[in-house]
Design a binder for these strands. Structure first.
Lengths: 340, 340
DNA sequence: ATGAAAGCGCTAACAT
DNA sequence: ATGTTAGCGCTTTCAT
């Protein structure tokens, strides 16, 4: 079936195996006519080079690793599929490694993985994109690295990011335009730095619109639904309730909606709610959640390109391009119901 | 760093490389004292065998492939992590391949993947577990195969499954016990056979309880939220409305809840709703969705064990063990509100 | 522009 | 119980 080796191809094409190798690796110094002969032989035999042999001889594995923290299943799967879409056609495979940011063993785990499997390049996703020890170890071993949405030490590796801060700013401005003045904010998990930027966007919008920042309106969450519920219970029990709550992710926003429903508050008439991420939950909730959609798959594709470029020894310039998120307006936000 | 080769270890331990190989591969015929010497040398040099060399010489890749259809991001990620948990400690890596059941190219894609990457074993998840062409191709190439929740041709490969049908039966009985007589059912995508069994469970429960099966209460969905909405609009517009709706998955159940909310129907007072899968959505909806949780991760772990057993040439007996699902009761189901 | 020869680091088959 | 000798199918180096 696929038993053909480089020798078979060489024989059929009437050249040496080195020439076949050159054709396959798109090296120069092959006459066009020779190249065609070889390509015909490859096609006829349905030849595929043996990866193990290539790796052994060339000291490369043709394998990339994706180390992911857990910002949600859809995020991870989207990243994963984006990477595959780009790396497979270029002959690279992907190995995935679920990592836990707080795990003391994480750095060791990752280091062993890349050393044992001779990984050619690594991609890190939030929150691990900002994990200093992992990054250092990778740099030390000189492994090509690319990060998705890092917030710190951006000069350490190529990366891709999205305009989270700007989107949050826009979302907040939109709420203000709807007449909201008391806008609650539920911040994300502190380990997850990229989500921290969302808070910055919120603050910037308030300042820009000369609305004082009221600390009682700001709660700390941890990205989970439950933390959203907890924060909402605090915010909605305030004497001066917010008329809108902006949660740093959809899961927490879903928690807010749950509490609002339980308290008999009408959304959006009595309380507007908005989230961030546009997870599937966002449009399955009632009412539909106004949120922000990141171009996750495109980020993954772009990042993979940057990684492969590095692996192939090409220069990658910093900073990488920034991809834009989009506000998705659904039914959970509406005009402020301000008592006059 | 990890530059030590088998020769270095052999030299340090004062034995031949073959003996080192034997120790590493846990072969017999090594004296205990020799084994210890070798192990000490391995530890001292932090030796890790080169995977490529092992693959090339042994004609094995130490790589498994997971071909997944798309039954939902959490399902996929759960499976993936379950597989990794078992295969990594045994020295196997995992390569993932998102496949589309309807894609005409799927069989070719999978075949090329296993041939080019010299995959040692393959796991199929629903709905691809029942994809005859893919299975045949794999069998033809003699690749060890394990399937998650197949419904057909079960003798073709080892597999793991859960008691979907029984769970659906139990869920339906539970609704009946709450006084429901008119129970709507929204069936899943016909390509996804495992979900079809859920319908069988529903029917069995009705028959058992001598409730006539009313075809107007049965709608065909496709596993999507939108199809759940569509089906709910039909069911809830019936002259003789159901008092409960059981959807074959959570996404469709979420669609039902959305429509009920829009129609101003109180859940569960006017309409009970239940789903299947216990996706994160289930407890983020308001009210919380009564549903069924499958032991996805355990299934994946069990399946991986079966796959590795096959790869190592051990006999695997059919049928494989059946793991049990659990009914999770939340607030979306309640007593039937039957007008007397 | 092309080829010959020497490994890459391991396993397998066969000694001993 | 342990060692020796050939490869596995490529890439690399160095000729030509």
């Amino acid at each position: 079936m696929i038993k053909a080796t480089i020798d078979d191809v060489a024989e059929l094409a009437g050249v040496s195996i080195k020439t076949v190798s050159r054709v396959f690796n798109k090296e120069s110094n092959v006459r066009a006519s020779t190249r065609e002969k070889v390509e015909a032989a490859i096609a006829e035999l349905n030849y595929r080079p043996n990866l193990s042999a290539r790796s052994l001889a060339g000291n490369k594995s043709f394998v990339l690793a994706l180390i992911y923290g857990h910002p949600g299943a859809h995020y991870v799967l989207d990243i994963q599929e984006g990477v595959l879409e780009v790396c497979r056609p270029q002959g690279y495979e992907l190995v995935v490694h679920p990592g836990v940011y707080q795990d003391k063993e994480l750095t060791k785990e990752v280091t062993e993985l890349i050393l044992e499997k001779r990984i050619d390049g690594v991609m890190l996703t939030p929150p691990i994109s900002d994990h200093a020890a992992v990054i250092n170890s990778l740099k030390k071993h000189n492994i090509p690295l690319v990060r998705v949405a890092p917030t710190e030490n951006k000069s350490l590796s190529p990366y891709v990011e999205t305009n989270d801060q700007e989107s949050s700013y826009d979302m907040t401005c939109q709420l203000i335009a709807l007449g909201h003045q008391r806008i609650g904010f539920i911040a994300g998990h502190p380990d997850h730095r990229a989500i921290g930027l969302r808070f910055e966007g919120y603050k910037a919008a308030l300042i820009e619109n000369q609305i004082p920042i009221d600390k009682t309106l700001i709660e700390q969450g941890d990205n989970s639904f439950e933390s959203g519920e907890k924060a909402a219970r605090v915010l909605l029990a305030l004497e001066q309730k917010p008329t809108a709550i902006f949660a740093a992710n959809d899961d927490m926003a879903a928690g807010v909606m749950m509490v609002a429903h339980q308290m008999g508050l009408k959304i959006p008439q009595q309380i507007s709610v908005s989230g961030f991420d546009d997870t599937p939950v966002a449009h399955q909730l009632w009412p539909g959640l106004t949120t922000i959609r990141q171009p996750i798959r495109q980020m993954a594709k772009k990042a993979t390109e940057l990684l492969l470029k590095q692996i192939k020894g090409k220069d990658v310039q910093l900073p990488a391009s920034i991809l834009s998120s989009t506000i998705i307006v659904r039914e959970s936000t509406g005009k402020a119901n301000v008592k006059k």
